[in-house]
Amino acid sequence: MRLWRRAVAELLGTGLLVAVVVGSGIAAQELSPGDTGLQLLENSFATGLGLAVLILVLGPVSGAHLNPVVTLAGWLLGRSSGTGPHLAEAGFYVAAQVVGAIGGSLLANAMFGVPSQISGTDRASGGHLLGEVVATAGLVLLILTLIRTGRENLAAPAVGAYVGAAYWFTSSTSFANPAVTVGRVFTDTFAGISPESVAPFVLAQLVGGALGVLLAGVLYPTAARRA
């Protein structure tokens, strides 16, 4: 599959993922005003289902990384065996994911008639950052586990279910994705995050990704061969 086609799939997929996250967050605010728990339930349910669908649709094209941490993990583990993306390919993937994420946020704002404004929601507390480490580590470990055990066909429901659950068991509501984090800066709604919180969040996600790779290496020493 040509690189430009795979990059388009990553841009489209990440954009639609952020549109689902932000759009369902706006809808939840409008449908359930004053009930934060119900809003989070609606937001997490829509995100989990939407992510599963996107993986099914785009997985055959690009692998449906939709996440720079996943792309970097694939590059890192595939360097020795030549099974992962090359560094240039990984760069194209990450650029496409970030551009798509920003576009998805703007699209969701437009669909709901919400002004596209920079978010003022500060999320960079110690607990939130720890939550991002846990959420991202779990996501990377899950993906590598499925690869190592030959169950890639379960990626869509498994990843969708994990992300939906991680909304609830992590204090940060599981961004677990640097591109999505950047995209959510451009909406001052339920799903938004302030620009000041982005760098700490991304750093925590990279740490979590590295931890996930390390855990996968301990549990499944041959994971790199299939990454």
Rank of each mutant, 00 (worst) to 15 (best):
V69G: 10
S197W: 05
L211C: 00
S32R: 10
A90G: 09
P115M: 00
T149D: 14
A64D: 03
G208L: 12
R226K: 13
V180M: 10
V202Y: 01
L77F: 04
P157M: 04
Y93C: 09
W75V: 07
T181P: 05
L38Y: 10
L211Q: 04
Y167R: 01
V182L: 08
E132C: 06
F92V: 11
L11S: 09
Y220L: 14
S32L: 10
V98F: 15
V70L: 11
L56S: 15
V134P: 10
G84F: 13
M1D: 13
A210M: 14
V140E: 04
M111F: 14
E152S: 14
L130G: 11
G23Q: 04
G48T: 06
A156L: 12
A137C: 11
T189W: 00
L54S: 08
H128M: 00
L16K: 00
F186P: 10
G25H: 00
I55W: 07
D122M: 09
G23Y: 04
V114K: 08
L12M: 13
V99I: 13
S125D: 08
G138I: 05
L76P: 00
A73F: 12
A124D: 07
L219T: 03
F45S: 14
G217L: 11
V213E: 02
G160F: 05
A191P: 03
R5L: 15
V198P: 13
R184L: 10
L72K: 14
V94Y: 08
L3I: 14
L54T: 08
A135G: 14
G150W: 12
T173E: 01
A156Y: 02
S171W: 00
A108N: 11
H65N: 13
F112P: 00
G48D: 06
G127H: 01
A156K: 07
I118D: 09
G160T: 07
G192K: 04
S32H: 09
L141W: 13
G78L: 01
S81H: 15
V182A: 06
A124P: 01
S80M: 12
Y167F: 15
G138H: 02
F186G: 07
G131I: 04
S62R: 09
G78R: 02
R6Y: 00
G91T: 05
T71I: 03
V57P: 15
L130M: 10
L11C: 13
P195T: 04
S105M: 10
I193W: 08
V218H: 03
V198W: 03
E132L: 06
A191K: 03
A137G: 15
E132W: 00
A210L: 12
R226F: 08
A158I: 02
G91L: 14
G209D: 04
L56E: 11
A88R: 12
S197R: 02
G74I: 03
A7Y: 01
I102R: 11
L203T: 08
I147T: 08
V207Y: 04
D35P: 02
A19Q: 09
G208T: 01
I193F: 11
A27E: 06
L107C: 12
S171F: 03
L12G: 11
L139M: 15
E42G: 15
L11N: 12
L214A: 14
T36V: 13
M111Y: 13
G84W: 06
I118P: 14
G138C: 01
G131Y: 02
